[in-house]
Nucleic acid binder design. Structure first.
Lengths: 226, 226
DNA sequence: CGAAAGTTTGAGTTGCTTCAACCGCGGTGG
DNA sequence: CCACCGCGGTTGAAGCAACTCAAACTTTCG
């Protein structure tokens, strides 16, 4: 009982489900499933069929293209609490293209295909929200393509740092640097060297996962110049 | 009058609008606008606001990330008759990220944001179709990311050839090779050399935009092996 | 038919990768 | 309590795939 209340609250707090009415919300909450995944466990793998849409309750998930002929895998995106993933494939009848793996012990909410479709049919504003969500995803993939195709290592790193949420002039890597490197389409060695050069130029200071940004303007300048 | 009938027919033939009822269809058709774009003309540019969704009636459009600090532009996708583009940005209130340019004299149908939203609100199955369309787009962007990050020049070209519609063992490049190269994330020189090597290996023959595929199996093998 | 655009080819360059050694730190078990 | 292991990260050296640049050639278009 208490449990269900938690779910209502959790779902209700997500942008996707905001202003569903209470009835719709608790119907969704009632029909969803909890999925627990240990650190390093897979939620799904490329080729699996899509049962629905996952919402991260606690923990962290990475989506990645599995390695191909010996190349390392390519990280596509990270998802933390409150974020949803796996929606796109639901609307096509296709298997997943990517692997989903937990970076820490993670609790997920699985909303079944059927229920999502029902919500769409019942509430056009939910459909719109869903469309906005997919559009957002599309938008950020196009930006990733831009990053990988039009920017060098230095620029990718600067762009990443500048787009991170900042508290004052401090930001941090939420996951280890190997994964950041993969997301940016770089080798770990190259990421390390790029950070080092920026440190030498006194633009940032790096201490483990913490990065202090000393000079945003100068970084932006270097971003634009190459 | 005749004109309207053409539009009805055109729209009705698109997957997106199939099984809208006649009333909805002609309402959509009534409120849309025709847009003529000459070869090399721009439909919109990065930074422009999105008025709605474009459908290609005749001609061909390319979507591309404009050049950044002297790099060449990066082609994202091509669209031919019956295909829709520019939908994603409509659902966010964001400007376009890409340029849309006509590769030939082109006739487009512009469906206004308002009308699309109205159709979504009225007909959940339209919403679903829209969702499927965006999902499809997402799917193919992820595949592009895979291509660029996990495959070498040779594999990208093979992959592209094998995924082209084929009549018998003949396929053709719908646009010039510079643009294909950009779509694949290669320089024109590299694409030319990759095609040459495949020709030398007697796997294909290239004559201008026409490509004969001599040995699909061998190509697939080479695709998998690197 | 001449100019412009597209394509191929060769030669030289390069930014990033790979490979491998090394460091530091946190956890584990003797 | 300390030795050991293993993972994440850094650093150096060497290699390479693809790029750039530039010239020759071909096709397209006005």
């Amino acid at each position: 009982m208490r449990h269900k209340l938690n779910l209502d609250g959790l779902l209700g707090s997500l942008p996707l489900f905001r202003n569903l009415d209470a009835g719709q919300l608790s119907e969704l909450a009632g029909s969803c499933r909890e999925v627990r995944v240990p650190r390093h466990g897979h939620v799904f793998r490329r080729g699996d069929a899509a049962p629905g849409l996952y919402v991260v309750a606690v923990g962290q998930i990475k989506l990645a293209l599995p390695s191909l002929h010996g190349n390392p895998e390519k990280v596509v995106e990270f998802f933390g609490p409150g974020q949803a993933f796996g929606e796109a494939v639901m609307f096509l009848d296709r298997p997943y293209l990517v692997d989903a793996q937990a970076l820490e012990d993670t609790l997920l909410i699985l909303l079944g295909k059927k229920d999502i479709f029902a919500a769409i049919d019942r509430d056009p504003s939910f459909a719109r929200r869903m469309l906005a969500g997919l559009s957002m995803r599309l938008h950020s993939l196009v930006q990733d393509i831009e990053t990988v195709n039009l920017q060098n290592a230095q620029q990718r790193v600067i762009g990443y740092l500048l787009n991170r949420p900042r508290e004052g002039n401090l930001t941090r890597f939420a996951v280890n640097k190997n994964l950041i490197a993969s997301k940016l389409g770089l080798s770990p060695a190259t990421l390390s060297r790029a950070l080092q050069r920026l440190s030498e130029a006194a633009l940032i200071s790096v201490a483990g996962p913490e990065v202090v940004i000393h000079d945003v303007q100068a970084l932006q300048l270097r971003f634009a110049a190459g």
